[in-house]
């Protein structure tokens, strides 16, 4: 049976892992390759690396990192942050990334999704959406690492992106991110039930019960978290043992 995935996320700045709260107050959290290796040995199902600087001059650092990760770990990984062109994707995949995640550039130019999925296959194109629930009760798409609001509703953008060829959706709730109060069950469940592709829930993990909740009630295909793993508040083996005991389909 296909299992639910546990995905540690490593935010990368200048080649180091960092973690902020609500996209701010960035702290150093260690060497990405060391952490990646540790997580893969502990039973992580995949890894995500998000380059939060991703300026042109820092690209080379990121590619060096991708090569080191690909050489050292034996599970799949996704790389994202600042990807805006087909060539960016070609270089990352060529150096060993299994998937790339695209966000702002895809929103501004939806044709990019089609171009990428035609050339590399939908399976390696992850559309990342940063979303926030507003006072009107609707979830809206935010761009530029959560700094820019758009008028687009998250469900509409997700549907459009899947029609264009996105193979997975990585959904981060800005309301929940960094709060450790649980994932955004309602929007995750809406997307997961309506879309034909897997949905990775992100933002808000604080306890093992939150993972159970997002899989059972949110119907997420995968759950992503960062700080609780980096700071060892939850260890992956204990989390997977808990979920398995709770009858969630998990790879042990």
């Amino acid at each position: 049976m296909l299992t639910k995935r546990i995905i540690p996320c490593l935010d990368i700045r200048d080649g180091r892992t960092v973690k902020g709260i609500n996209f701010e107050n960035i702290r150093d959290a260690g060497d990405p390759v060391e952490l990646a290796l540790l997580y893969s040995q502990q039973g992580a199902d995949e890894l995500v690396f998000l380059d939060i600087t991703a300026t042109v001059e820092k690209r080379k650092t990121l590619i060096e990192l991708v090569k080191r990760v690909a050489a050292n770990i034996n599970i799949p990984f996704t790389v994202g942050g600042g990807i805006s062109a087909v060539e960016d994707v070609a270089v990352l995949l060529q150096h060993g990334a299994d998937k790339v995640s695209i966000n702002t550039a895809a929103f501004k130019n939806p044709g990019l999704i089609k171009e990428l999925s035609n050339r590399f296959g939908s399976q390696c194109i992850v559309l990342a959406i940063d979303t926030k629930k507003e006072a009107d009760g609707e979830w809206y798409v935010y761009l530029n690492g959560g700094r820019t609001k758009t008028e687009a509703k998250t469900i509409d953008w997700a549907n459009q992106a899947v029609a264009l060829g996105a193979g997975e959706i990585l959904l981060t709730s800005m309301n929940n991110d960094g709060t450790k109060a649980g994932f955004a069950v309602d929007i995750t469940s809406l997307l997961s039930n309506q879309l034909s592709v897997p949905v990775i829930a992100s933002g808000g993990a604080g306890t093992m019960q939150h993972f159970k909740e997002i899989f059972e009630e949110g119907n997420a295909d995968a759950a992503l978290a960062a700080s609780i793993f980096h700071y060892k508040e939850i260890e992956i083996p204990a989390l997977k043992a808990y979920l398995s005991a709770e009858k969630i389909s998990i790879r042990l």
């Binding site: 296909l2 299992t3 199902d45 399976q123 997975e168 592709v197 897997p198």
Partner: peptide
């Protein structure tokens, strides 16, 4: 019911 592509760990 099931999503396509199949992505993840299976037996």
């Amino acid at each position: 019911v099931l999503k396509v592509p199949q992505i993840g760990w299976n037996n």
